[in-house]
């Protein structure tokens, strides 16, 4: 019993110290020594790795999720004779919830785990250490570009996800199930508000981007530099950031749409 309590205490302390290290890493990465303009290619490279390379999975999943939403929504709405509400149903589900959340989960699996593994491996092969000995701050050189690339990419990916999903809904709803095409768009326009729905979704996505990228980088930077340590860190990235995204999603939804 006493052991259990001790264990809980130790775990709590570990969580706090992890949070502290992650925050310190972030500060080091963002506010350390100023970087010259020549870091530009680094940022482009990371935007490519983190953003462009996640594009395919985002487009494909967005398309299918939009199609499934339309299919499921249609069967329910048709019972009430409210097929023309299919547009708002698909658009609002995507913009408010599924777009930001599913993008964040996919991003954690696709880009987040890759970031953790990459940085963990750089640590294990002493690349970070040797950079430090060359008087180059690895937080500025390695962590900062990846962080910004993640925070910028994810909202962009979520926007693309939403747009593709709505088009996918159109494909199934209008072209296949025969909902009126004009009604699909006009009902959407009547019910979707740019500030309330589109921008709030983008804000959510920014918050998730921050969380997922920070967790991924921190787990990599803090990984035990062995192959077991890196594989454990990669798993933790996916698990922790997925849970964090779902938890924060509840809070944000309550604040944004709950009132």
């Amino acid at each position: 019993m006493l052991n259990k309590i001790q264990q809980i205490g130790a775990n709590t302390l570990a969580i706090f110290s992890g949070l502290g290290r992650a925050t310190m890493m972030l500060f080091g990465a963002l506010f350390g020594r100023p970087r010259p303009i020549k870091a530009w290619p680094l940022y482009i490279k990371q935007l490519y790795v983190v953003g462009v390379q996640s594009l395919l999975i985002i487009v494909v999943s967005g398309l299918f999720i939009g199609m499934v939403l339309a299919l499921q929504g249609y069967t329910v709405l048709a019972k009430f004779g409210a097929e023309q509400m299919l547009g708002p149903l698909v658009a609002l589900s995507l913009l408010r919830e599924l777009g930001p959340v599913v993008t964040a989960l996919l991003f954690a699996g696709r880009a987040g785990s890759a970031l953790t593994a990459e940085i963990g491996l750089m640590k294990a092969t002493e690349q970070l250490s040797s950079m430090e000995m060359m008087a180059v701050d690895p937080l500025r050189r390695v962590v900062a570009p990846r962080f910004w690339a993640g925070v910028i990419s994810m909202p962009l990916l979520a926007l693309i996800f939403n747009a593709v999903g709505i088009l996918g809904g159109h494909l199934v709803g209008v072209d296949w199930l025969g909902v009126d095409g004009g009604g699909y768009w006009s009902a959407m326009q009547a019910n979707v508000d740019f500030q309330q729905d589109v921008l709030n979704g983008v804000i959510k996505s920014f918050v998730f981007a921050f969380i997922v990228t920070l967790i991924a980088l921190h787990k990599g930077y803090d990984a035990i530099p062995t192959s077991e340590g890196i594989s454990a860190a990669t798993t933790q990235t996916v698990v922790t950031s997925s849970l964090a995204v779902l938890g924060f999603d509840f809070v944000l939804t309550a604040v944004m749409f709950g009132g």
Partner: peptide, 9 residues
């Protein structure tokens, strides 16, 4: 000079 070389891969 690190033991592994620590070249940037």
């Amino acid at each position: 000079l690190f033991q592994s070389g620590a070249l940037f891969s």
